[in-house]
Computed example of a mutant assay.
Amino acid sequence: MRPHKASICATLFALALALPASAQQTIKIGSSLGLTGYGSATDGHWRDGMQIAIEAVNAQGGVLGKKLELVIEDNKSTPQQAVVVYRKMMTDDKVAAFDSGCISAGNFAAASFVSRAKLPMFLCSILPRQPDEQKWAFQFLPPPKFEVAARYQYLKDKTDIRKVGILSDPSPYSLLMRGLAEKGAEEFGLTVVANESYQQDDADFSVQIGRINAAGAGAIIMLGQGNAVVTVVNNIRSLGLTRMLMLGSINELDILLSAGKVLGDQYLVPSPLIQVAADDIKVITDPAARAAAEPFVKAMKAKFGKSDNAQASRAWDSIMMMAAAMKKANSTDGAAVRDAFEKLGHYDGAGASYDFSAENHIGIIKNPYVIASVKDGVLVLKK
């Protein structure tokens, strides 16, 4: 008796779902991204960088005879949805690894079951908290201490300001920076005289700014990303604080330009050099760094025209290094890829240089930030 056609289709479908990642026709890379919600701009650029990197790898023959395939799921910038999409990509898509965006809370929420499945996580965010989870995660975000130090060093070297106020949002990354900013000020001869907080959807910061000004601060150290910085600079201008410096956090290029347009030379920001080089790659003077950056910049311009390179460059680097680890391991097995990744050694990337090892899963060990300002509608190095 011949099997029923529907029964055959159902069997084949079940077999397809049961295939391990190594048996698939492509190597699937999962990515949990906040494409809606507060992280949409940042994670959108991370997606762009991954996409052009995968296209570049595939154009050169792929990895281990297979093409890379990017599986993207929107976590809506919430940890609850991140858990849902991580599980979906593991069970339905059978991904070999994760390369996820900058929503720290979402990556934290999924890290326990991803690590139990022995799948490596390459992250735009800070590492999860537990040692067993950190064993499987690799951080492509510069340590928060570098962002704080770049601003404090500028104040120490270039200004006579010695009193600062902190204005921070409640995200894990900002809270980590706030602790560093409070403890590290004295090292640079600075004193934190006010410590204010805000929510990401606040529409006005005049009260917090007023308290910072009343405490005698000559500069605001803002810890937090997104459009809130534009509200803050508008509040500073409306309050008539013409001598108050505003040193913002790393941010998307369009937001930096908008804030600089409002506040001019009063607005300064730590920026990776590749972001400043969006209009002139000659800004990158180190030969190894420029050689690493040039193919990325060329690919970005070809696909997107002018775009923000800050997050996208490190996303490009993460895919390129992941591919290199798979080739080194001659495998897509999670443990083998992790072990090979730890042994890649020093790597000059488009967004930074990296030094991952078995003991160090935070790859950027040299401060990649310069202080920039906005002049004539473009981001420039602040002398």
Rank of each mutant, 00 (worst) to 15 (best):
residue 162 R to W: 07
residue 141 L to T: 02
residue 70 L to W: 06
residue 20 P to R: 05
residue 290 R to W: 05
residue 356 F to A: 01
residue 267 Y to E: 03
residue 128 P to T: 01
residue 291 A to N: 11
residue 199 Q to W: 04
residue 341 F to Q: 00
residue 324 A to S: 13
residue 315 A to T: 02
residue 329 A to T: 08
residue 137 A to Y: 03
residue 106 G to N: 01
residue 206 S to E: 14
residue 171 S to C: 09
residue 337 V to M: 03
residue 262 V to T: 11
residue 109 A to Y: 00
residue 171 S to L: 13
residue 349 G to D: 00
residue 378 V to K: 14
residue 9 C to G: 14
residue 32 S to L: 10
residue 131 P to V: 07
residue 88 K to H: 11
residue 195 N to G: 04
residue 31 S to D: 08
residue 379 L to P: 08
residue 124 C to D: 12
residue 17 L to I: 10
residue 98 F to L: 03
residue 102 C to G: 06
residue 53 A to L: 03
residue 5 K to R: 12
residue 28 K to Y: 11
residue 144 P to E: 13
residue 368 P to D: 06
residue 92 D to Y: 15
residue 81 Q to C: 05
residue 10 A to N: 14
residue 105 A to Q: 07
residue 322 M to F: 08
residue 273 L to V: 10
residue 271 S to E: 14
residue 230 V to H: 02
residue 10 A to I: 11
residue 324 A to V: 08
residue 243 R to A: 12
residue 40 S to R: 05
residue 355 D to A: 13
residue 182 E to D: 15
residue 55 E to P: 00
residue 264 G to Y: 03
residue 170 P to H: 10
residue 129 R to A: 15
residue 209 I to N: 01
residue 368 P to V: 02
residue 98 F to D: 00
residue 206 S to H: 12
residue 357 S to I: 05
residue 68 L to G: 04
residue 376 D to P: 03
residue 348 D to Y: 14
residue 128 P to A: 00
residue 304 F to N: 12
residue 269 V to E: 03
residue 41 A to G: 12
residue 61 G to T: 02
residue 246 M to S: 11
residue 214 A to K: 15
residue 51 Q to I: 15
residue 375 K to I: 02
residue 217 A to L: 11
residue 74 D to A: 08
residue 155 L to D: 05
residue 13 F to D: 03
residue 245 L to A: 05
residue 205 F to P: 07
residue 121 M to E: 05
residue 108 F to R: 08
residue 20 P to M: 02
residue 46 W to Q: 01
residue 224 G to N: 06
residue 353 S to Y: 13
residue 218 G to W: 09
residue 312 A to E: 06
residue 323 A to D: 07
residue 45 H to F: 14
residue 366 K to M: 12
residue 12 L to G: 09
residue 278 A to Y: 10
residue 374 V to N: 02
residue 296 F to G: 01
residue 321 M to H: 03
residue 169 D to R: 09
residue 316 W to M: 02
residue 98 F to I: 03
residue 152 Y to F: 15
residue 92 D to E: 07
residue 311 Q to S: 13
residue 345 G to I: 02
residue 57 V to P: 00
residue 88 K to D: 10
residue 184 G to A: 05
residue 175 L to C: 07
residue 57 V to L: 07
residue 200 Q to Y: 15
residue 109 A to F: 00
residue 71 V to I: 14
residue 121 M to R: 05
residue 244 M to G: 09
residue 63 V to Q: 04
residue 338 R to V: 00
residue 309 N to A: 14
residue 215 A to M: 11
residue 335 A to L: 10
residue 234 N to I: 05
residue 84 V to P: 03
residue 318 S to G: 07
residue 238 S to D: 13
residue 374 V to G: 09
residue 256 L to G: 08
residue 265 D to Q: 09
residue 213 N to L: 12
residue 304 F to W: 10
residue 22 S to T: 10
residue 237 R to D: 15
residue 13 F to G: 12
residue 252 E to T: 14
residue 199 Q to M: 11
residue 354 Y to E: 00
residue 42 T to E: 13
residue 28 K to D: 04
residue 247 L to G: 07
residue 341 F to L: 04
residue 275 Q to I: 12
residue 274 I to E: 11
residue 3 P to W: 14
residue 117 A to W: 01
